[in-house]
């Protein structure tokens, strides 16, 4: 009722055969990109499987020291869809999001168990380079965090650190990314100005432009609109709707109405790190299977 049917999205914009071939190629290429040392197992089995899941976890657990923050999470995140992660504070939703591109690696005492597959490759395998992984799975944070550089340099940053500024037309790449983030028309005449001069909503879209400039596949968003006014937040929501044409979006939000408005699937985390229910967003908000989810989303607790 509230959200469009996920199956309606992007109707047949690509022929299915092409899509599968693309996925196969992308997987092979990805293995090269993510792995900086020798690959120890063959990938034919994974590569041959037609799979619309881009990120899948099995028995994923996260501990911070003695505290367990995630309990055996099994989830399959669909490609080119918006997946919302909701739940009360301390339910592990940000921990889950950050585990997807190994941002938790940087936290002392953090231990990960189980498996998290990106196109069938466990990203916690020793041969995976987290920096390479984060180029494929970018992240946008709650508070807009542009670098104290020009708008242009903010967007070009990722390509420059990858040493790609010689290979690609940097001007074109910057324009593409800014257009992709629905910011181009507002900044095209002031690309030299500092990113910090922009409004909060523009800064957040600049951060999205910076993230998509390196051509990731998945965008992780951790409460990307909670620091923005409603109009700026609406623009980000509209933008997310466009971004899933090219990317897969996983968004953590405290705003249940936002999850209902913009996501195709919703995962509800409760009880200090348990994934309680994961289903079509319309199902979650019209008729959730789990009573605890019903109680949470109707505000009976939490």
């Amino acid at each position: 009722m509230m959200a469009r049917d996920p199956d309606d999205r992007n109707p047949a914009s690509k022929p299915r055969e092409t899509e599968e071939t693309d996925t196969t190629m992308a997987t092979a290429q990805l293995e090269d990109e993510l792995i900086t040392t020798e690959v120890e197992t063959g990938s034919t089995e994974r590569a041959g499987r037609p799979d619309e899941t881009v990120v899948a976890t099995t028995g994923l657990t996260v501990h911070y020291g003695d505290d367990q923050a995630l309990w055996d999470v099994d989830i399959e995140i669909p490609v080119h869809k918006v997946t919302a992660i909701i739940g009360p504070s301390g339910c592990g939703k940000s921990t889950f999001l950050r585990s997807i591109n190994r941002m938790n690696d940087q936290i002392d005492g953090c231990r990960i168990g189980g498996e998290l597959h990106f196109h069938g490759k466990n990203v916690y395998d020793e041969d995976v380079d987290p920096v390479a992984l984060r180029r494929k799975i970018g992240m946008v944070f709650q508070k807009p965090n542009p670098f104290p550089k020009s708008i242009y340099d903010n967007v070009a940053y990722g390509l420059r650190v990858q040493g790609k500024d010689d290979e690609v037309d940097l001007d074109a790449a910057v324009e593409d990314a800014l257009r992709g983030a629905a910011l181009w028309d507002e900044v095209k005449d002031k690309l030299d100005e500092s990113g910090l001069e922009l409004s909060g909503g523009q800064q957040q879209r600049l951060c999205i432009a910076r993230t998509i400039a390196t051509d990731p596949e998945v965008l992780l968003m951790d409460e990307p609109t909670s620091a923005l006014d409603p109009v700026a937040a609406s623009k980000i929501e509209d933008l997310i709707d466009e971004l899933v044409e090219e990317y897969t979006v996983v968004i953590v939000t405290h705003n249940m109405q936002q999850a209902a408005r913009i996501s195709d699937k919703t995962a509800v985390f409760l009880n200090g790190g348990e994934l309680v229910e994961f289903d079509r967003t319309a199902t979650i908000f019209e008729n959730p299977a789990d009573d605890r989810v019903e109680d949470y989303i109707t505000g009976k607790f939490g």
């Binding site: 009722m1 249940m256 109405q257 209902a260 979650i284 908000f285 019209e286 008729n287 959730p288 989810v293 019903e294 989303i297 109707t298």
Partner: peptide, 9 residues
């Protein structure tokens, strides 16, 4: 109130 689930129904 943006009711959902059982409340919405």
């Amino acid at each position: 109130q943006q009711p959902v689930a059982g409340d919405l129904r």
